[in-house]
Structure formats: structure tokens, C-alpha cells
Write a protein that binds this DNA or RNA. Structure first.
Lengths: 151, 151
DNA sequence: GCACATCTACTCGGATAGAGAATGTCCGAGTCTCTGGGG
DNA sequence: CCCCAGAGACTCGGACATTCTCTATCCGAGTAGATGTGC
């Protein structure tokens, strides 16, 4: 149960983009320098966020990335699932139906209790991440850290 | 955010061990055949559970594994963290202190908002997993599936 | 019949390969802007 | 003075290495029980 490092990058970049004027794009180079990240690798994560519909990408001079929605409408969960891929966390292999004491399928109409517990936990995790939006994170920044993204 | 496959194995094995008479050990071979798992690989996870203090291992004939505590006192979270290693899910790299608009350390006495959101989410996940014990999972099994672990 | 030494068979544990994903990097395709010339 | 064509520079996107974790496997160390022998 480990979270990819790119998640941190993605959320911070979303926070940075939320502090720009509407309609202004920020290049990945500026974002990378803002946090001293590898520009080439950051590109990978930004692309994932574009594919997920969180960012809009524009090429050419004065191009770059900008949010597709107001930061109040983007949750941390959105970013995490965009970067991580959002696939299922736990894949139940139904091992209860295998082996010497395998259960017959009619006994398995209900889902495996293990899978239920795992899914409930993941749902609690997702729910917690949904409770925080990018706008919330901006509001929690120290005053000295707001609006510091160089033009 | 993916969960190791061995977690499923570990939980199911714990459920199986919970259905044995107290003081009786079950060999890893029996457990592997019970669910048609790879015996050699299962050994790795069982060993992890022994190191975590969930299982007690005994060698020699009629040896094997048994639970160190009653199943009511073993939560799913215990098993998950035993198998997965329980390390931190999200490692904040404090990238807010790096780059062109780095924050000075005195602005970072409070934790990074991103890390806080991640930790809260993980705590919600852990709390959900703690709510279910191995005994609960045994109780939820179909009647036909209980006590079917061959001696 | 009983006690003891030995021996066997069974158990777990650590060390060792292979596959897949995450990480990190590079170069090419596309497009907006700026510049220079002509009308 | 205005318009247009071209060049240039800047941007993102996809294809290519490298490292690390998870998966999978094997063989050796140790121990409890069974066995055979002597008293």
C-alpha cells in the first residue's frame, strides 16, 4: 500500500495552477522550476492529468497548462486517481472457490467477505480524499506562499 | 495505490486458522492446498505474519502455524500491515521548500497540507480495516464453508 | 514390559532468479509569435 | 501606414532506458515423533 511519488507532484502543481489568473497557462518548465522537479518526468504526470480531464494543455509560445474547472470543483481524489490510474486497489481472486475445500459457485453469490472489507476501506479512503479540494489547499497555505508563481 | 496480492492470501489463511481447535497447528502445505496457492510463495507471507506477531510457527511433525491471539483480537488491518510491511503510504518530500518560490523553514512549522490530506485518508482507511476482525469474517462465511479445514 | 539412543520424515527459514511497474530521460510534431518585406 | 509571408522559438506528446518492488522458486537448518534395541 504505497502511493506513487508523482501524486505529490500533481497535487502541488494543481495548487500552483489554482493561483494563476483565469485563462493564463503555465508551462511545465515553469512548474518544474517552481518545485525543483525533473521537467521530463513531470511531463508524464501532467499528461495523465490532461487525459483525465483535469488540465487543459496548449502548445506554442505562452502555452502551457491550466485547470479545466475552478479549484473548488477539483478534489484531491481527482488528482490522485488521475495520476495513479484509478484502477481497483484490491483484486479479489476468489481463492475461496479453489483448492481442497472449494466452495461451489452457488455459495458465492454474495461477495467474498475479504473483498467487502477491502472495498469498504478503499471507499473510506476515497471519501476522505474527496473532502479536500484544491481550493482548500490554497486557502491553507501560509500567506507568504500564495500567489508566488512567477509569471 | 495498489494492494499486494499476498494480502488476500494472508487474510484467508488467518480465517482458516481461526477455524481450527486451539493449540492445533496447520502446516503451510495444508493451507496452500486449501486454497490452491503456491506453497513456496505463501511461506513468505506466513513468515511476515510470524514476524509481526500474528502467528506462531512450530517446526517438526505436526508442526505448522497457529494464531497467537483469539480471532476476535486480530483485525484485518493487522494482517494487511503484517504482509505489506506497514510502511508509510505517502512520503512527503517537502517540495514546497524547494525551487524558485521555496518557502523558508519557519513557514513550514505546520505540516504540508497535501501530506495532511493524505494522512487523514490513510487513517480513514486504517480505521475501516480495523473495524473488521478475523472472527467477523468467519461468522460471515456460508455455513457450508465453516470448519472445512481438513485435519 | 520399559527406557534410551538413533533415525526418519516433516516442518519452517533464508538465499536466489524472473516479471512487471514505477522512475527517469530523450527527441520529434505542432503551433503561436515575431520579424521583415511589399503594396 | 497596413497587410502578408516566412522564419524562429517555444510548447506538448510519445518512444526509449534504468531501477526498484512484487512475484515466484529452490534448497538447507532444525525439531518432534516413530522405531528398534538392550536391559
Amino acid at each position: 500500500m504505497k502511493l506513487s511519488q508523482g501524486v505529490e507532484w500533481g497535487v502541488h502543481c494543481a495548487v500552483a495552477l489554482a493561483q494563476t489568473a483565469p485563462g493564463v497557462s503555465v508551462s511545465r518548465r515553469t512548474l518544474a522550476e517552481r518545485y525543483a522537479l525533473s521537467e521530463a518526468y513531470l511531463a508524464k504526470h501532467l499528461k495523465a492529468m490532461v487525459s483525465a480531464g483535469l488540465l487543459y494543455a496548449m502548445t506554442g509560445p505562452n502555452g502551457g497548462f491550466r485547470l479545466t474547472r475552478p479549484p473548488e470543483q477539483i478534489t484531491v481524489l481527482d488528482v490522485v486517481e488521475a495520476v495513479e490510474g484509478g484502477g481497483p486497489q484490491f483484486v479479489c481472486q476468489e481463492i475461496r472457490q479453489r483448492g481442497t475445500a472449494a466452495l461451489s459457485p452457488e455459495h458465492c453469490l454474495e461477495r467474498c467477505g475479504v473483498a467487502i472489507a477491502m472495498d469498504e476501506a478503499k471507499e473510506a479512503w476515497r471519501s476522505s480524499l474527496s473532502a479536500t479540494t484544491i481550493a482548500d489547499l490554497v486557502a491553507r497555505l501560509p500567506a507568504a506562499a500564495r500567489g508566488r508563481l512567477g509569471t
